[in-house]
């Protein structure tokens, strides 16, 4: 059902079903990092404006700086289901290698190791490591036994509205069903000729060609997603 090309990771549970996880690549993770850093800088500079006046204020400021710099990702990952604010926004999530939520140990280790990943500048080591690893793990992930995955499974095809739900005349394999849904999903973006040409291919299923076939495909798709 899954081919090796789509980068999904199969997780076999004790109950004998396989669950799929999709590791997230460097680009999306860099965006999440940028969001986090931006938020952190904003809140720190706002706080500096408030506390910067007195000596004691600057002391508290430095304490907050320490706790937020090292603690922000850890606290959010442990209590926020593996998501810092940036990761939440980008639809990413940190999980253990076995797909379970991260705990204190994993989160502390992977975030301490950020320092090593940051070297020599702007996550050079981390990027290099991610490109070599099949699951896009940076050094911290390797040491802590974690990985970053996409939180939501690939978006479900939108409900097909413009067809009368109709059952299939004979069962299709999941791959064939997927192909059918993909076609119907992409159909609005194809030219008329191309659409009809492709619909012709489904003649064994629809017992028709051209517009008749296309209409039937829409009905089947509506039946599948109903």
């Amino acid at each position: 059902m899954t081919s090796i090309l789509d980068g999904r990771l199969e997780l076999l549970t004790p109950e004998g079903v396989s669950l799929a996880l999709t590791p997230a690549g460097p680009a999306r993770r860099a965006m999440a990092w940028a969001v986090d850093t931006f938020l952190w800088l904003i809140s720190i500079s706002m706080l500096m404006g408030i506390l910067g006046g007195s000596q004691a204020g600057r002391g508290i400021m430095l304490l907050v700086l320490f706790v937020s710099y090292w603690g922000y990702p850890i606290l959010f990952e442990v209590y926020g289901k593996g998501m810092t604010l940036g990761k939440r926004w980008m639809g990413l999530q940190v999980v253990r290698a076995d797909g379970l939520p991260v705990g204190w140990r994993e989160s502390v280790l992977r975030n301490l190791l950020l320092v090593a990943d940051f070297l020599p500048f702007l996550y050079g080591v981390g990027l290099f490591c991610m490109l070599l690893d099949g699951r896009f793990r940076r050094l911290g992930d390797l040491v802590a036994g974690t990985m970053v995955i996409y939180r939501d499974p690939p978006a479900k095809p939108a409900r097909i509205e413009d067809g009368q739900p109709q059952p299939l005349p004979f069962p299709l394999t999941p791959d064939e069903q997927r192909a059918l849904l993909d076609f119907v999903g992409r159909a609005p973006r194809l030219s008329d000729e191309r659409r009809l040409e492709l619909a012709d291919l489904a003649e064994p299923l629809t017992k028709g060609i051209g517009h008749a076939s296309l209409a039937k495909l829409l009905n089947f798709a509506a039946g599948l997603t109903r």
Binding site: R58, G59, L62, L63, L65, F66, W70, L112, L113, A116
Partner: peptide, 24 residues
Amino acid sequence: LMMFGFYIWNNVSIGFRTFAGGIL
């Protein structure tokens, strides 16, 4: 208090960096 904040921020961070740098 200010020096306390400074020592925490500076010295504990050095400790963390020393550990993380170990991986290289």
